[in-house]
Structure formats: C-alpha cells, structure tokens
Simulated assay, not measured.
Amino acid sequence: MIAEKIKLAVPVLPGIDPEDHIAEWVADHVHGLLPDPCEEAAGHAKAAEDTAAVIEDPASLLPRTARELVPRAAGRALGLISEE
C-alpha cells in the first residue's frame, strides 16, 4: 500500500522505474521505521501487572499500547528520534 501511494504522489516514477524498484525500496524503508504494534502489545502483556488486567479485559491493553506507540512511531517516521 505504501508503494502504491508513492507512485500516486510521484506521477513520473512509473515512467522512470517501470518495475517499481524505487517505490518498493522506499516502502520497505518506511515500513522498517514503524514499530510492529503486535510486538509492542506482546511486550506489554509480559509485564506482571499487565497480565492480570489482560486476563480480566483483553481489550484494555490495546488503547494503552496505542498511546505509547503513536508518538514514538511518528517521531521515528519523521526522523525526530532514532533507534538506539
């Protein structure tokens, strides 16, 4: 989906790169910057205090994970923060 959006944003790209190597490379790079929300939620669920909350209400972990994930993902995508 990212590669298709890139081709729409840069209309000359299909003429320059008909095999979509550039769009795919950019998409892979952007995808690599964004954290996986499933991995983040799994990491949170491993904490002892979260385990009881997840057992009682499994959906409660999702909003908390999203609140922590969105600022970090946006910062990484915009180049404001980097992975240590």
Rank of each mutant, 00 (worst) to 15 (best):
A41C: 08
C38R: 13
L34E: 14
I55V: 13
E19P: 01
D36K: 04
H44Y: 12
A42E: 10
A42S: 07
H31L: 12
G43T: 06
A45H: 03
I22P: 02
H44I: 06
K46R: 14
L13I: 00
E39N: 11
H44G: 10
H31K: 15
E39S: 07
A48F: 11
H44F: 12
A27K: 11
A41G: 07
A48R: 14
A45R: 05
P14C: 01
E19G: 06
D20Y: 04
A45F: 00
H31T: 14
H31V: 11
V30W: 11
D36M: 00
A47I: 05
H31I: 11
E49D: 14
K46P: 03
P35E: 15
H44Q: 15
D50R: 11
A27I: 11
W25N: 13
A52G: 07
A41D: 05
A48D: 13
A27R: 10
P11Y: 00
L34K: 09
A9C: 00
D36V: 02
A45V: 03
A53C: 04
P37I: 03
W25T: 14
I55W: 12
G32E: 04
D28Y: 09
W25C: 06
I22E: 05
E49M: 08
I22A: 07
P18M: 03
E40C: 03
C38M: 11
A27H: 11
D17G: 07
W25E: 13
A41H: 09
A52C: 04
V26N: 01
D28Q: 15
A9W: 02
T51V: 07
D50L: 08
A48H: 10
L13S: 00
E40T: 09
H21T: 08
E24C: 05
K46A: 12
A45D: 03
T51N: 08
V54T: 15
I55L: 12
G43I: 06
D20H: 06
A42G: 03
P14M: 02
V54I: 15
A48G: 08
A47E: 11
L34S: 11
P35F: 10
K46V: 04
A52E: 15
V30F: 13
D17A: 06
I22G: 02
V12Y: 06
C38G: 07
E19R: 14
A45C: 03
D50I: 09
V54H: 15
T51C: 02
H21M: 08
A42W: 04
D28R: 15
V26Y: 05
A52K: 14
D28T: 13
P35G: 11
A41E: 14
E39T: 12
P37D: 01
A23F: 02
W25R: 15
D36H: 02
D28I: 03
V54P: 06
D17N: 04
L13R: 00
V30C: 09
E19C: 01
H44K: 14
I16A: 04
I55D: 13
A42R: 12
V10R: 01
V12T: 12
K46M: 13
D20L: 01
E24V: 12
A53Y: 05
W25Q: 10
H21I: 09
A47L: 09
V10H: 01
V12A: 08
D20V: 02
I16M: 05
I22K: 03
E49A: 06
E19A: 09
E49P: 02
D20N: 14
L33A: 08
V10D: 05
P14R: 05
I16E: 04
A47H: 11
G15P: 00
E49F: 08
E24L: 09
C38A: 08
E24M: 10
